[in-house]
Design a binder for these strands. Structure first.
Lengths: 205, 205
DNA sequence: CTACTTTTAGTATCTGGTATTAACATGACA
DNA sequence: TGTCATGTTAATACCAGATACTAAAAGTAG
C-alpha cells in the first residue's frame, strides 16, 4: 500500500494548511496557493474537507467575537469587559474565567489573571495620558474557579492633583463574595488624555 | 442662511448613521438604506464623507484588533522562560517585552505583564501540588520599555513547613537595574508534587 | 428663473469567494 | 493490460458587498 505514502502529502498539506490559517487567519486562498504550490481549487477542497470557512467568514467570526466582548466600551486595552467607567472616580469590569486562565488540574484561576483585570481597570480609570502602576498591595481572598465571573470594581481614592500619584482600590467579586482586593498606586502624567472613545467623552471637548 | 436648516436633515442623518454603525458595525449599506429611507448611493456618499469604511473593512479591522488582543495576553502556563529552578529555593526566568506587552503610545510595558512573570515564577518555585497566590506586595520601580529583557529572580524566604504559606520574594532586573520587586505569599498544599530537578516547564498545579 | 446642493440612478469593475462539472494524472489491483 | 479510485487542476457561472464614475433628477435659496 503506497497509498499511505501517496496520501500523506495531502494530509500533511492539510495539516499544515490548518496550522497556517490558525497562525494567520487573514490568508486568502490565493496566498495559500503560493505557499503550498497547489492550485486554488485544491486549497478550496482542503478548506472544505477541514471545515475551514472562507477568509471573510473567518474575519466576521473574529469580529463578532471581539464585538461581543468589547461592545459596551471601546477600551480595547483592558483585560475584561469594562461595563462602567467614570474617569477619575470609578469603574467596573467583568472577566470570566475560562479554561486558559486556570491551573489545569485544580481549575483554579492563576493569580495574574485576576491581577490583570484589576490592574488594567485601575489604569483605565485614571484619566491621564500616561498612567502606570507604581506599586500594589494585593490580597487573593479566595480561589476563583473555572467559569466564575469576576466583577472588579475600582474606586479612585485619592487623586492628588495632576502629575503625581493616584490611589486606586480594586475589589473583585464573584457574586456577593469578595475574592480579591488590591490597593494600587498609579503614576499619572500631566495632560488629560481621552477625547474619543464613544459614550464617555463629550464633556472633555 | 437657512442653509443650516436645509443641511440639517443631511447632517442629522449622517450623525445618526455614524451612530447606527457604531452601535452595530455589521450593517450593510442595503440595511442602512432601509433604516434611513434614502438610496444606497446616499448612504455611500455619507459613509465617504464620514470616513466610515465599508462593512468588510470594518469587520477586518475588528478582527485584526481582536486578533492582536488575543495575542497580547499570553494565557499559557508560565509567563516567561524559566531558565533555572531550584524547588523551594529559587528560580530565574526571562521575559522579553514585545509590542503586545506595551502601551502603544508610550511603549512602556503594562504592569500586569511584569507581574505575570513574577507571579508565575513565584508559583512555579513552590514544590507543591497546589500553589496559589495568597497576597502580594509590589513595587514597580522603574518603567520597563519595549524590547527590554526582564530577568526575574525568585527566592523562597520562608517555607513554614508543609501545608501553609510560603513567602517568595521576586526581584526583576533589566540588566543590572532593578525594575520590579514583589513579595508574595503563596498558599501551598500538602503533598510534594515534583521529583528532583526534572524539566522546568511542568505545570505548577 | 437660475445656480447650487442633495439625492438618486445606472453601469462597469473589483475581491474573494461558492457551486458545479469535467478533464487529467497517478497509482492500485485483478 | 484495462479499469477503478483518489487526487489535482481547469473552466465557467454566479454571488455579496462593495468602489468608481457619470449623469440625471429633485429640492431649495436668492
Amino acid at each position: 500500500m503506497v497509498r499511505a505514502i501517496e496520501r500523506q502529502p495531502k494530509r500533511q498539506r492539510q495539516q499544515q494548511l490548518a496550522q497556517a490559517i490558525e497562525d494567520n487567519p487573514f490568508l486568502t486562498d490565493e496566498e495559500l496557493t503560493r505557499m503550498f504550490k497547489v492550485s486554488i481549487q485544491t486549497i478550496r477542497l482542503d478548506r472544505m474537507e477541514l471545515g475551514i470557512p472562507e477568509l471573510r467568514e473567518r474575519m466576521k467570526l473574529m469580529a463578532e467575537r471581539s464585538y461581543d466582548q468589547v461592545r459596551s466600551l471601546p477600551l480595547d486595552e483592558v483585560i475584561g469587559e469594562v461595563i462602567d467607567l467614570q474617569l477619575d472616580k470609578s469603574g467596573i469590569s467583568i472577566f470570566e474565567i475560562k479554561e486558559e486562565h486556570v491551573f489545569s488540574r485544580t481549575k483554579i484561576a492563576r493569580g495574574h489573571h485576576i491581577f490583570s483585570q484589576a490592574n488594567s481597570l485601575a489604569v483605565a480609570v485614571i484619566n491621564d495620558e500616561i498612567a502606570l502602576t507604581a506599586s500594589a498591595d494585593l490580597r487573593f481572598i479566595r480561589p476563583v474557579k473555572l467559569h466564575e465571573k469576576c466583577i472588579a470594581k475600582a474606586y479612585v481614592r485619592s487623586s492628588s492633583g495632576k502629575n503625581g500619584k493616584a490611589k486606586v482600590e480594586v475589589i473583585t467579586y464573584v457574586g456577593e463574595e469578595i475574592v480579591f482586593r488590591g490597593n494600587f498606586v498609579i503614576y499619572r502624567s500631566a495632560k488629560e488624555a481621552r477625547v474619543g472613545g464613544g459614550k464617555l467623552h463629550e464633556d472633555s471637548d
